[in-house]
Amino acid sequence: MVRLPLTPAELERGQRLGALLRRARGERSMLEIALDARVSPETLRKIESGRVATPAFPTIAAIAEVLGLSLDAVWAEISRPDGGAEPARSAREARARLVS
């Protein structure tokens, strides 16, 4: 199967996703989060660094659950039309943004 190249928008969304997950992880270790989400630490590292811009839905769902993020909050943060110019600094802020 041939995979089409990612668009610039998909690459940017992947970068925003990685940044959101890093912020939500805070001081917790990458290993701890990966093991709790049942993904490899390498997979989490690649997602957080933006090297995997379009991770599988179950992978993101598992990581989001461990980090206490709703999938709605994740999607709202990474798909903002302004490119996420003012990203939430924590999972709590991402959730609060949805409520307000």
Rank of each mutant, 00 (worst) to 15 (best):
I60M: 04
G50C: 08
R25V: 02
V2G: 11
P8E: 15
R51L: 10
V74E: 01
P87W: 03
P55I: 03
R3A: 14
L11Y: 06
G68R: 06
R45E: 12
S49C: 07
L4G: 06
R28K: 13
R45K: 10
L44Y: 02
A34T: 06
S40F: 09
A64P: 01
G83A: 12
L98W: 10
G68W: 10
R16N: 07
A64S: 10
G84M: 05
R13M: 04
P55E: 04
A34H: 00
I60G: 01
L35D: 05
E93K: 02
E12P: 04
R13D: 04
P41S: 09
V52Q: 10
P58T: 12
A64Q: 01
A94G: 05
L69C: 03
R38G: 08
L98H: 13
P58K: 05
M1D: 11
R97G: 08
A34M: 03
M1F: 12
D36K: 06
S49E: 14
L44W: 00
E27Q: 08
L71R: 08
V66T: 02
R51I: 09
A62R: 02
T54L: 13
V99R: 11
S90R: 04
F57D: 07
S100C: 10
V2L: 15
L44T: 00
S90K: 05
